[in-house]
């Protein structure tokens, strides 16, 4: 059974359609890269999966449960499908360690000691254990994003959604974050990645979905998508690679 099945998802803002009949499936351990031009609905799609936005219609089955039904526990689901944002969204009023511990304590009800141990383990995984007492404002962009990834890992999520995690970073920092994500991929973490880093997406993902004006233009295993792209995806790749 697929871990995530999205069917006929529709979303509009003020009457303007952003997502139209978006459907795809994700298996456990998959890495799905969502590509598309700016405004094609990539981030909105991730936000719908994380329930930060409510789709107008359609279904999202997570482990067989429709997370859009009114009986679904949104907070519990969000703790299992985490999101890493372009702008990091670290809690500015807390240290790196507290950032990692907060949701573990409040949502998973872990003890302080356990939350601390797990936080330090995950911070070590992203190479930032020594920064545990630092405030986010003292970190570089790459470090902030690695903390955001560690914060998400602390929740042991089933799926991590990455919304353009490297867009706000310079090339050196992009490499830092990409390395962390590659190691997560090797560990078999299920992830959905929205990015403009075409080559990184090609290297890391098992599946590629190309959105064009809110519609799925192509959804295929990554190698097949890049070797036999649809006309629109081919044009997109040409433009992106020329930048």
């Amino acid at each position: 059974m697929s871990i995530l099945t999205v069917s006929n998802l529709k979303k509009s803002f003020d009457g303007e359609s952003v997502l139209e009949d978006v459907s795809f499936t994700l298996e456990k351990g998959d890495c799905l890269a969502i590509l598309g031009n700016s405004g094609s609905g990539k981030s909105t799609l991730l936000r719908c999966i994380n329930l930060l936005e409510r789709p107008d219609s359609g279904t999202i089955l997570f482990e067989g449960e429709n997370i859009l039904s009114h009986s679904a526990n949104e907070n519990r689901l969000r703790s299992r499908i985490n999101m890493v944002f372009q702008s990091f969204n670290l809690f500015a009023n807390m240290s790196v360690l507290d950032n990692c511990m907060l949701a573990q304590r409040k949502v998973l009800r872990r003890s302080k000691e356990e939350a601390r141990r797990i936080s330090l383990e995950n911070l070590a995984k992203v190479g930032l254990k020594e920064k545990c007492d630092a405030l986010p404002s003292t970190l570089s962009g790459g470090q902030k994003q690695r903390v955001a990834i560690a914060r998400s890992l602390c929740m042991n999520p089933e799926i991590i959604l990455f919304d353009e995690p490297t867009s706000a970073l310079d090339p050196m920092m992009v490499a830092e974050v990409c390395n962390v994500m590659s190691s997560l991929r090797e560990e078999g973490v299920t992830m959905i990645l929205v990015t403009h880093q075409i080559e990184f997406a090609r290297n890391i993902s098992s599946k590629t979905l190309f959105l064009h004006q809110g519609k799925v233009d192509l959804c295929a295993p990554t190698e097949e998508a890049f070797l036999h792209p649809s006309p629109r995806f081919a044009e997109f790749l040409k433009v992106e690679r020329s930048l």
């Binding site: 907070n75 969000r78 299992r80 944002f85 500015a92 907060l102 955001a148 998400s152």
Partner: peptide
């Protein structure tokens, strides 16, 4: 910043 509450909500905080 709105991102602060989105960051918290996305982790499952009420």
């Amino acid at each position: 910043d709105k991102g602060q509450s989105e960051g918290a909500r996305s982790l499952g905080l009420s």
